[in-house]
């Protein structure tokens, strides 16, 4: 991949464009980034994208910003990260600056409200779609533990309202224990 001016421009405008469409919380950025960086540009592979999303999720701050920083850093180091952060914060900065000038009128506009009501159902569908795809990947590993972790975090977060940071810490611990057990197994197998 050549890191010329065109590459940086593409990186900046991709994050700018994706950020302008992250309605309904940060999670929509996941399907949008996958489509753009994995499927369209082939800059990052599927597995690594999942890792980056996991790191973005586990760090403080907004998910969309964190994910952009990670993608930018992965593709072009520190300058890449700064470029993608700028691309991600500019759209909300511009849009909110404009809206705050006339926010009463914007909030009460019928057309805007109906559009957003429809988009909310659309956002739910986009997230459902990416969850189905990702869950399929987890189930295909044919191991019980990841499926339990997935179902467990879903239930704990959706039904019990468990804190995201706590979920992340617990699952990291589960993953670590699993890795320790696997290593022990492998070592014992080697001894025999």
């Amino acid at each position: 991949m050549k890191k010329d001016f065109r590459f940086y421009a593409k990186l900046f405008f991709s994050t700018f464009y994706l950020s302008a469409f992250t309605f309904g919380g940060g999670y929509v950025i996941v399907p949008l980034m996958r489509k753009r960086f994995v499927e369209q540009y082939h800059w990052i592979d599927e597995q690594e994208m999942l890792d980056l999303i996991a790191i973005a999720q586990s760090s403080p701050g907004a998910m969309a910003v964190n994910a952009s920083i990670l993608v930018g850093y992965r593709l072009a180091g520190l300058p890449g990260a700064l470029l993608t952060v700028a691309g991600t914060i500019l759209p909300p900065l511009i849009i909110i600056s404009l809206v705050s000038l006339a926010y009463q009128a914007f909030r009460e506009n019928t057309v805007v409200n109906l559009l957003l009501k429809g988009m909310q159902a659309g956002v739910a569908a986009v997230i459902a779609n990416v969850v189905v795809g990702m869950a399929r990947g987890i189930v295909r590993q044919k191991r019980i533990l990841p499926v339990c972790v997935m179902a467990g975090t879903f239930l704990a977060s959706a039904l019990l309202g468990m804190n995201v940071a706590l979920c992340v810490l617990l699952c990291a611990a589960v993953g670590l224990c699993d890795a320790v057990m696997q290593r022990r197994h492998e070592k014992e197998a080697q001894k025999r």
């Binding site: 999670y27 179902a151 995201v164 979920c167 992340v168």
Partner: peptide
């Protein structure tokens, strides 16, 4: 190891966020 625990957790968390948007909608 840590990442292998986080990957399925992220799918679960995204699903939970999706369900709450679905309920709102």
């Amino acid at each position: 190891g840590v990442l292998s625990g986080l990957r399925p957790a992220v799918v679960g968390l995204i699903a939970a966020a999706g369900i709450s948007i679905l309920a709102l909608s």
